[in-house]
């Protein structure tokens, strides 16, 4: 075979002047995590709001919620990245568009990437939130009304605290998804982990060493998140319920 392995490549200096190749990869990991965490905050916030309005008795609110979810589910993430990065700044007023485009790197690409990942994942979180609320017995909502709570109060004090605890496991897998999906941001020049591995390949020509390192790092991150999730799930599980079940996985990543 014509491929020359060189596992010591990680400790060689990268030509971008920041340090060794290994250092470049860890900087990439940092961006991956920053991207995933910020987008996750947006996804949770928007997802809970949209999920809730899809379960309210108000039909028009429910329709808006449904339209929101369909919009983000039926366009590929890559295309959504392009919409946020290339299209959005041209459609807003020129001054704002220019301000967005001239944000110093990496923010000019990082901010659209966070917004894109956040909204994309929020549609998926909304699905989980809705399923969680719908899984509660109808009596709970009625009990709230009977106590004289308003609709928002019923959600705030009765439905949401239960629903959110129930959906912790599926939310955990959505968090794993957001880490993986953040790699799509490399198409708009965010130098996250996969992009750092690709850059390492371009500079050093050591294709497989670069991708092996990235793969191992992703697996380790995954492992850490899974362990953390297990801890959280145990802490937060609703007493008296059967608990994490192995139901059919929904389609998706």
């Amino acid at each position: 075979m014509h491929y020359h392995w060189n596992w010591r490549i990680y400790w060689q200096q990268s030509p971008d002047g920041s340090g060794t190749y290994l250092h470049t990869l860890f900087v990439g990991l940092g961006w991956t995590l920053a991207l995933a965490l910020l987008a996750w905050a947006i996804a949770l916030l928007l997802g809970i709001v949209v999920g809730v309005i899809r379960t309210t008795p108000l039909r028009w609110l429910e329709r808006i919620g449904n339209a929101y979810v369909e919009l983000f589910r039926n366009i590929p993430l890559l295309v959504q990245m392009f919409l946020w990065y290339f299209v959005m700044p041209e459609l807003v007023p020129t001054a704002l568009g220019d301000w967005i485009k001239q944000m110093p790197p990496p923010w000019g690409a990082f901010v659209p990437a966070v917004l894109c990942l956040g909204t994309f994942t929020s549609a998926r979180v909304a699905e989980q939130v809705r399923a969680g609320i719908n899984s509660l017995s109808r009596g709970q909502g009625m009990a709230g009304t009977a106590l004289g709570l308003t609709l928002p109060q019923t959600y705030r004090y009765v439905l949401l605290p239960m629903a959110l605890r129930i959906i912790v496991p599926p939310l955990g897998s959505e968090f794993l998804n957001i880490i993986k999906n953040s790699a799509v941001a490399l198409t708009i020049n965010v130098v996250e982990l996969t992009a750092s591995a690709r850059a390492m390949q371009e500079y050093s020509f050591q294709v497989f060493e670069a991708f092996t390192a990235a793969t191992v790092i992703y697996l380790l991150v995954n492992l850490v998140v899974v362990l953390l999730m297990r801890l959280i799930e145990r802490k937060i599980a609703v007493p008296g319920l059967i608990g994490p079940s192995g139901g059919p996985a929904p389609a998706g990543h």
């Binding site: 999906n181 799509v184 996969t194 697996l219």
Partner: peptide
């Protein structure tokens, strides 16, 4: 556990080597 983008890179560059290994070719 790994992003699809990374898997796409892996396979695009690796498959010809795997093929060579399967058919016992040295190139």
């Amino acid at each position: 556990s790994v992003p699809l983008v990374l898997v796409i890179f892996w396979f695009y560059f690796l498959v010809p080597y795997m093929g060579a290994w399967v058919v016992r070719s040295d190139t």
